[in-house]
């Protein structure tokens, strides 16, 4: 059995780290603004993320009372789609590494 080539091992390690980084979940964070209606926020959370009314209302109140809430934790590409959908509905949303 031959010893593994050092360069191959290094490259494989780098590729695995890149895969891990890509697969690392990101948080979808919604921020409070003083104008958007609470009923609308609950409605959008339910529609975009499929939450039941209780969960959507809890998250909306967290945004309102604490200034922000993590509404989803997803792989980066999916999280970016979620943020774009929230932006399309006029909500203040950002992505943050988990």
């Amino acid at each position: 059995m031959s010893a593994p080539n050092e360069l191959v091992v290094r490259e494989t390690g780098a590729a695995q780290r890149a895969d891990l980084e890509r697969d690392r979940p990101w948080q979808v964070v919604v921020w409070n603004d003083p104008v958007t209606l609470m009923t609308y926020v609950v409605f959008v959370f339910r529609r975009l993320f499929g939450y039941d009314r209780e969960t959507a209302t809890r998250l909306m109140l967290q945004v309102h009372n604490e200034g922000r809430a993590v509404v989803a934790t997803e792989p980066r590409e999916r999280a970016e789609v979620s943020v774009a959908q929230l932006h399309a509905h006029g909500l203040q949303a950002t992505l943050a590494r988990d």
Partner: peptide, 16 residues
């Protein structure tokens, strides 16, 4: 407010 940022990181934001 109608155009919020998505990322803190400038490079990622430009890409977005």
């Amino acid at each position: 407010w109608v155009r919020p940022r998505a990322y803190e990181d400038e490079g990622l934001e430009r890409e977005y």
